[in-house]
């Protein structure tokens, strides 16, 4: 996987790495047993301080999502995916189609993100469902 870190976004880089890893675990881009990129690879690609990456990985390890194996790398030991298989696949395809339509209608990236975020916000309120992961 690749991290896309935005500097000056107000969110510290290490948090962005944690969030993006969680997201990848959720949507299935990262699966059980997958290897996270090495600190060197992340650093070279994103130009953040090596300590930042290590700190993010430690955070993920503390959360029990990944495990660092001496000399081998950091591996996924637990995923966050709820629904596996066909259902997820179908949902993703629908979402892809929806995003494509949104773009055709002239929506910017930020608009799309805002729309989806507000939908998530509305529909995942604790009263609606109790299974929202803590952000």
């Amino acid at each position: 996987m690749e991290f896309r870190l935005r500097k000056g976004s107000g969110v510290p880089a290490y948090q962005q790495i944690v969030q993006q890893t969680q997201q990848a675990l959720r949507v299935g881009t990262l699966r059980l047993g997958d290897k996270l990129p090495t600190a060197r690879e992340v650093v070279a690609a994103t130009a953040v301080n090596p300590n930042t990456v290590l700190r993010a990985y430690q955070e993920l390890q503390r959360a029990g999502l990944v495990e660092s194996r001496q000399g081998l790398g950091t591996f996924v030991v637990r995923t966050l995916g709820r629904a596996e298989g066909a259902a997820t696949e179908e949902l993703r395809e629908e979402l892809d189609a929806w995003v494509a339509r949104a773009r055709e209608h002239g929506l910017e990236r930020e608009d799309v993100l805002a729309l989806t975020a507000s939908a998530v916000e509305r529909l995942f309120q604790p009263s609606h469902s109790g299974n929202g992961e803590p952000a």
Binding site: G10, V11, Y14, Q15, N51, L54, R55
Partner: peptide
């Protein structure tokens, strides 16, 4: 404020 500053990453973490 960012959590970044609350627990300082120490250099010893770098292998």
């Amino acid at each position: 404020m960012s959590v970044d500053r609350m627990s300082a990453p120490t250099l010893e973490q770098v292998p």
